[in-house]
Design a binder for these strands. Structure first.
Lengths: 100, 100
DNA sequence: CGTGTAAGGAATTCTGACACG
DNA sequence: CGTGTAAGGAATTCTGACACG
Protein backbone atom coordinates (compact mmCIF):
# COMPACT_ATOMS: atom_id res chain seq x y z
CA UNK A 1 0.00 0.00 0.00
CA UNK A 2 1.21 3.51 -0.77
CA UNK A 3 2.19 6.02 1.87
CA UNK A 4 -0.78 8.11 0.86
CA UNK A 5 -3.19 5.43 2.00
CA UNK A 6 -1.45 4.35 5.16
CA UNK A 7 -3.30 5.30 8.36
CA UNK A 8 -0.64 6.77 10.61
CA UNK A 9 -1.61 10.36 11.46
CA UNK A 10 -3.21 11.32 14.77
CA UNK A 11 -6.15 13.67 14.94
CA UNK A 12 -4.14 16.59 16.29
CA UNK A 13 -1.89 16.61 13.24
CA UNK A 14 -4.85 16.12 10.92
CA UNK A 15 -6.44 19.14 12.56
CA UNK A 16 -3.37 21.22 11.78
CA UNK A 17 -3.10 19.94 8.23
CA UNK A 18 -6.74 20.57 7.41
CA UNK A 19 -7.56 23.58 9.58
CA UNK A 20 -10.56 21.70 10.93
CA UNK A 21 -11.24 21.31 14.66
CA UNK A 22 -10.96 17.86 16.20
CA UNK A 23 -14.66 18.11 16.94
CA UNK A 24 -15.43 18.58 13.27
CA UNK A 25 -13.19 15.71 12.22
CA UNK A 26 -14.85 13.33 14.69
CA UNK A 27 -18.27 14.48 13.62
CA UNK A 28 -17.55 13.76 9.97
CA UNK A 29 -16.60 10.27 11.01
CA UNK A 30 -19.90 9.94 12.86
CA UNK A 31 -21.60 10.94 9.62
CA UNK A 32 -19.68 8.24 7.72
CA UNK A 33 -17.54 10.56 5.67
CA UNK A 34 -14.13 9.38 6.91
CA UNK A 35 -12.99 6.06 8.32
CA UNK A 36 -9.85 6.26 10.46
CA UNK A 37 -8.25 3.18 11.94
CA UNK A 38 -7.52 2.85 15.65
CA UNK A 39 -4.57 1.92 17.79
CA UNK A 40 -5.07 -0.80 20.39
CA UNK A 41 -5.72 2.00 22.85
CA UNK A 42 -8.42 3.54 20.69
CA UNK A 43 -6.57 6.53 19.24
CA UNK A 44 -7.66 7.43 15.71
CA UNK A 45 -5.18 7.17 12.85
CA UNK A 46 -5.70 8.86 9.48
CA UNK A 47 -4.00 8.69 6.09
CA UNK A 48 -2.91 11.55 3.83
CA UNK A 49 -5.74 10.42 1.62
CA UNK A 50 -8.12 11.02 4.51
CA UNK A 51 -6.60 14.47 4.97
CA UNK A 52 -7.32 15.26 1.33
CA UNK A 53 -10.85 13.97 1.69
CA UNK A 54 -11.37 16.14 4.77
CA UNK A 55 -10.19 19.25 2.96
CA UNK A 56 -12.63 18.40 0.21
CA UNK A 57 -15.42 17.94 2.73
CA UNK A 58 -14.47 21.22 4.33
CA UNK A 59 -14.90 23.03 1.03
CA UNK A 60 -18.26 21.45 0.39
CA UNK A 61 -19.45 22.39 3.86
CA UNK A 62 -18.42 25.97 3.22
CA UNK A 63 -20.54 25.85 0.08
CA UNK A 64 -23.52 25.07 2.29
CA UNK A 65 -23.69 21.38 1.52
CA UNK A 66 -24.90 19.09 4.31
CA UNK A 67 -23.09 15.97 5.42
CA UNK A 68 -25.71 13.59 4.06
CA UNK A 69 -25.52 15.31 0.67
CA UNK A 70 -21.77 14.92 0.62
CA UNK A 71 -22.07 11.26 1.49
CA UNK A 72 -24.72 10.76 -1.18
CA UNK A 73 -22.52 12.50 -3.74
CA UNK A 74 -19.54 10.31 -2.92
CA UNK A 75 -21.62 7.17 -3.15
CA UNK A 76 -22.91 8.25 -6.52
CA UNK A 77 -19.37 8.79 -7.77
CA UNK A 78 -18.48 5.36 -6.41
CA UNK A 79 -21.32 3.71 -8.28
CA UNK A 80 -20.44 5.48 -11.49
CA UNK A 81 -16.83 4.39 -11.18
CA UNK A 82 -17.94 0.81 -10.71
CA UNK A 83 -20.24 1.09 -13.67
CA UNK A 84 -17.50 2.43 -15.91
CA UNK A 85 -15.23 -0.39 -14.91
CA UNK A 86 -17.90 -3.00 -15.44
CA UNK A 87 -18.59 -1.67 -18.95
CA UNK A 88 -14.90 -1.59 -19.72
CA UNK A 89 -14.55 -5.19 -18.62
CA UNK A 90 -17.50 -6.16 -20.76
CA UNK A 91 -15.95 -4.55 -23.83
CA UNK A 92 -12.64 -6.22 -23.19
CA UNK A 93 -14.35 -9.56 -22.87
CA UNK A 94 -16.32 -8.97 -26.05
CA UNK A 95 -13.17 -8.04 -27.94
CA UNK A 96 -10.86 -10.83 -26.78
CA UNK A 97 -13.15 -13.57 -25.67
CA UNK A 98 -15.56 -13.88 -28.57
CA UNK A 99 -16.39 -17.48 -27.83
CA UNK A 100 -16.87 -18.48 -24.23
CA UNK B 1 6.78 18.87 -0.13
CA UNK B 2 5.79 15.27 -0.78
CA UNK B 3 3.86 13.13 1.68
CA UNK B 4 6.94 11.01 2.10
CA UNK B 5 8.86 13.88 3.65
CA UNK B 6 6.11 15.33 5.80
CA UNK B 7 6.67 14.88 9.54
CA UNK B 8 3.35 13.65 10.86
CA UNK B 9 3.84 10.25 12.50
CA UNK B 10 4.11 9.81 16.26
CA UNK B 11 6.74 7.58 17.81
CA UNK B 12 4.31 4.83 18.73
CA UNK B 13 3.28 4.31 15.11
CA UNK B 14 6.90 4.56 13.98
CA UNK B 15 7.71 1.85 16.48
CA UNK B 16 5.08 -0.42 14.93
CA UNK B 17 6.12 0.35 11.38
CA UNK B 18 9.81 -0.28 12.03
CA UNK B 19 9.68 -2.92 14.74
CA UNK B 20 12.06 -0.81 16.81
CA UNK B 21 11.37 0.10 20.43
CA UNK B 22 10.65 3.72 21.28
CA UNK B 23 13.81 3.66 23.32
CA UNK B 24 15.85 2.72 20.28
CA UNK B 25 14.21 5.36 18.11
CA UNK B 26 14.94 8.09 20.65
CA UNK B 27 18.47 6.88 21.06
CA UNK B 28 19.14 7.07 17.33
CA UNK B 29 17.96 10.65 17.48
CA UNK B 30 20.39 11.32 20.31
CA UNK B 31 23.11 9.92 18.07
CA UNK B 32 22.07 12.29 15.27
CA UNK B 33 20.76 9.64 12.92
CA UNK B 34 17.18 10.90 12.67
CA UNK B 35 15.68 14.34 13.09
CA UNK B 36 11.99 14.38 13.98
CA UNK B 37 10.05 17.59 14.33
CA UNK B 38 8.04 18.43 17.44
CA UNK B 39 4.54 19.56 18.23
CA UNK B 40 4.10 22.62 20.42
CA UNK B 41 3.79 20.23 23.33
CA UNK B 42 7.04 18.47 22.51
CA UNK B 43 5.77 15.26 20.92
CA UNK B 44 8.03 13.90 18.19
CA UNK B 45 6.75 13.70 14.62
CA UNK B 46 8.41 11.57 11.93
CA UNK B 47 8.04 11.22 8.16
CA UNK B 48 7.77 8.05 6.09
CA UNK B 49 11.23 8.93 4.91
CA UNK B 50 12.40 8.80 8.52
CA UNK B 51 10.73 5.42 8.88
CA UNK B 52 12.69 4.14 5.88
CA UNK B 53 15.88 5.56 7.31
CA UNK B 54 15.20 3.84 10.64
CA UNK B 55 14.65 0.49 8.97
CA UNK B 56 17.94 1.02 7.18
CA UNK B 57 19.65 1.89 10.45
CA UNK B 58 18.11 -1.15 12.06
CA UNK B 59 19.62 -3.40 9.41
CA UNK B 60 23.02 -1.83 9.79
CA UNK B 61 22.87 -2.24 13.56
CA UNK B 62 22.05 -5.92 13.10
CA UNK B 63 25.14 -6.17 10.95
CA UNK B 64 27.14 -5.03 13.96
CA UNK B 65 27.70 -1.48 12.79
CA UNK B 66 27.88 1.20 15.48
CA UNK B 67 25.87 4.40 15.43
CA UNK B 68 28.86 6.63 14.78
CA UNK B 69 29.85 4.46 11.83
CA UNK B 70 26.38 4.73 10.38
CA UNK B 71 26.46 8.48 10.80
CA UNK B 72 29.88 8.68 9.19
CA UNK B 73 28.72 6.55 6.29
CA UNK B 74 25.69 8.74 5.67
CA UNK B 75 27.81 11.88 5.77
CA UNK B 76 30.17 10.38 3.25
CA UNK B 77 27.30 9.60 0.92
CA UNK B 78 26.08 13.15 1.39
CA UNK B 79 29.43 14.62 0.45
CA UNK B 80 29.71 12.43 -2.60
CA UNK B 81 26.24 13.44 -3.74
CA UNK B 82 27.20 17.10 -3.38
CA UNK B 83 30.39 16.48 -5.27
CA UNK B 84 28.59 14.81 -8.13
CA UNK B 85 26.17 17.68 -8.38
CA UNK B 86 28.93 20.26 -8.29
CA UNK B 87 30.76 18.52 -11.10
CA UNK B 88 27.59 18.26 -13.12
CA UNK B 89 26.96 21.96 -12.70
CA UNK B 90 30.48 22.72 -13.78
CA UNK B 91 30.09 20.71 -16.94
CA UNK B 92 26.81 22.37 -17.74
CA UNK B 93 28.38 25.75 -17.28
CA UNK B 94 31.30 24.82 -19.47
CA UNK B 95 29.01 23.58 -22.21
CA UNK B 96 26.51 26.44 -22.31
CA UNK B 97 28.34 29.34 -20.84
CA UNK B 98 31.59 29.37 -22.76
CA UNK B 99 32.20 33.07 -22.26
CA UNK B 100 31.44 34.52 -18.87
C1' DC C 1 27.73 1.27 23.50
C1' DG C 2 23.01 0.16 23.01
C1' DT C 3 18.84 -0.86 25.22
C1' DG C 4 15.43 -2.19 28.94
C1' DT C 5 12.83 -0.38 32.67
C1' DA C 6 10.39 2.05 36.54
C1' DA C 7 9.03 6.96 37.75
C1' DG C 8 6.53 11.08 37.59
C1' DG C 9 4.62 14.37 34.92
C1' DA C 10 2.78 16.57 30.84
C1' DA C 11 0.52 16.45 26.34
C1' DT C 12 -2.87 14.12 23.58
C1' DT C 13 -7.02 11.79 22.71
C1' DC C 14 -11.49 9.65 23.88
C1' DT C 15 -16.46 9.54 24.97
C1' DG C 16 -20.92 11.30 26.30
C1' DA C 17 -23.35 15.34 27.28
C1' DC C 18 -25.13 20.03 27.39
C1' DA C 19 -25.67 24.21 24.66
C1' DC C 20 -27.00 27.02 20.71
C1' DG C 21 -29.68 27.39 16.85
C1' DC D 1 -27.64 20.20 11.74
C1' DG D 2 -23.03 21.30 12.84
C1' DT D 3 -19.92 22.73 16.24
C1' DG D 4 -18.05 24.66 20.71
C1' DT D 5 -17.00 23.45 25.33
C1' DA D 6 -16.23 21.64 30.12
C1' DA D 7 -15.50 16.99 32.41
C1' DG D 8 -13.22 12.94 33.74
C1' DG D 9 -10.55 9.37 32.41
C1' DA D 10 -7.42 6.67 29.64
C1' DA D 11 -3.68 6.24 26.28
C1' DT D 12 0.53 8.26 24.64
C1' DT D 13 4.75 10.54 25.03
C1' DC D 14 8.56 12.93 27.44
C1' DT D 15 12.81 13.34 30.20
C1' DG D 16 16.47 11.90 33.29
C1' DA D 17 18.27 8.09 35.63
C1' DC D 18 19.76 3.48 37.02
C1' DA D 19 21.15 -1.01 35.29
C1' DC D 20 23.71 -4.29 32.51
C1' DG D 21 27.65 -5.14 30.01
Amino acid sequence: MSYKEKKVITIGVVSELTGLSERQIRYYEERKLVFPERTKGGTRKYSFSDVERLVDISNKMEDGMQTFEIRKMEQKQMRQAELREKMLRGQLNAAFNIRK
